[in-house]
Each structure stands twice: as structure tokens, then as C-alpha cells.
Amino acid sequence: MYIHLGDDFVVSTREIVAIFDYKAKTSPIVEEFLNKQKQQIVSSNSTPKSIVVTLQSIYFSPLASGTLKKRAQSKPEIDS
């Protein structure tokens, strides 16, 4: 299944490692992690509300972390 992260970002749920609130960026541990992974960051044109870490990249998403969590946990509807 795929999840839309906002703007033009769509990733496979299998690739997602973590989803957390953008405010966590102020944590020294998160700040250090993001500084070491600068080349992997894909930023949105909108104001970021969450950070999505995947196996390949780190996305700054304009959607709230709770919204992304719900999208990742929802099962797709299949029309018969």
C-alpha cells in the first residue's frame, strides 16, 4: 500500500521507518540525526508538520503526524 505524504510525495508503507511530529526536531538527538542525513531530506514547499523517515529518504510533510499514522494504518477498500 502507498501513502500520500502531502504535496507530490507518495511512498510505500513498507518503506516507512518512523513518523513523528516536526516539533521533535528541537530534540538534540533528532537534530543530530537530521544534520547527519541532510542529503536524504526531501522538503515540502509548505510548512512542515511532520517528519517521515523511510529507508531511502527523510520527508518533511505538511500533514500532521496523526493524519499520516491513520493513513498508514487504514486498509484499502476493494470494490467487488
Rank of each mutant, 00 (worst) to 15 (best):
F9G: 01
Y22F: 15
L68V: 09
N45E: 09
K38Q: 13
F33E: 10
P76L: 06
S12V: 01
Y2R: 13
E32H: 13
V10N: 03
Q40F: 09
H4G: 07
G6K: 06
F20E: 10
A18I: 02
Q37T: 11
Q56C: 02
F9T: 02
P62R: 11
S44C: 13
H4W: 13
Q37N: 14
K70P: 00
L5C: 05
M1H: 09
A64E: 12
I3A: 14
N45M: 07
V53Y: 04
P48M: 08
V53T: 11
N45T: 14
A24I: 04
K36S: 15
Q39L: 09
N45A: 03
V11G: 04
M1G: 14
I78R: 10
Q56L: 06
S44V: 01
L63I: 06
K38N: 10
Q39V: 04
K70R: 15
K23D: 15
Y2H: 13
G66M: 12
I51E: 05
R71F: 09
S80F: 11
P48V: 05
V53G: 08
A24V: 02
A18G: 01
G66Q: 12
R14A: 10
M1Q: 11
S27C: 06
S57W: 12
S46Y: 12
M1A: 13
Q56I: 00
V11K: 01
E77G: 01
S27A: 14
N35V: 01
P76S: 10
P62E: 11
E77H: 12
Q37A: 13
K23F: 07
K36H: 11
L68S: 03
V52D: 04
R71E: 11
L34G: 06
S44Y: 03
E77R: 07
H4L: 09
P76Q: 10
D21P: 00
I3C: 15
F20K: 08
T13C: 08
T67C: 06
T47I: 09
K49L: 15
L68P: 02
I58Y: 04
S57E: 09
L63D: 08
Q73I: 09
I78G: 02
V53Q: 08
F60C: 03
S50I: 06
F9K: 08
K38C: 02
V52M: 05
K49I: 03
L34Q: 02
T54L: 04
S12L: 01
I16R: 06
F60N: 03
K49T: 07
A24F: 07
T47V: 14
L55N: 15
A72K: 15
T54A: 08
A64D: 12
S61P: 00
D8W: 01
A24G: 01
I51T: 11
P28S: 09
G66R: 13
S61T: 04
Q37P: 02
N35G: 00
I29H: 12
